[in-house]
Amino acid sequence: MGVQPDVTGLLGTESQPIHFPAGLIGFDEWKNFVLVAHKAGGPLRLMQSLDDERVSFIVVDPRHIVSDYQPQLLEEDIDALQIVGDLEAAWPNEIGVYCILSVHEDPFVVTANLLSPLIINWQAGLGRQVILANSGYAARHPVVSAEKKA
């Protein structure tokens, strides 16, 4: 099981499968994903659904967008992810934090969902989309806006 054949020739290393017991918010049927790197490196990942090959997301560690990003997880989240110990210390090696990017083509606009990141416990193979309800982070944090297009 894995990502569909790489027709683009762009895909690099594929992660272990990650199980999201609660799925994604609003889409609880999407419960299993892999993260795929780009062949040429860089922080972007393709998060590919193993339940529906049409479903994929572009994700990135939010510290590439907001360098002091601090997700404050609820007890239920920590419990569900089986996280032991300090998240900051475990990030990014034992715990992965990713935010989902929305990419619009014309005009070229990219926003990041910093309000509800994906938290991955690599050791347990578990993931969860959490909502940082009182954080002040935006669901559409601008990454690229049309005016700044190169």
């Binding site: 972007l44 572009i58 989902i100 990419v103 619009h104 990219v110 989309q129």
Partner: peptide, 26 residues
């Protein structure tokens, strides 16, 4: 969040091929 997830999922398909170079360079 549901709306944003949907928006992101529908945008990824195009982005992967057409926009990935621009996105990566960001």
């Amino acid at each position: 969040v549901k709306q944003e997830n949907l928006r992101a999922a529908t945008s990824a398909a195009d982005a992967e091929q057409k926009l990935l170079p621009s996105l990566r360079s960001v």
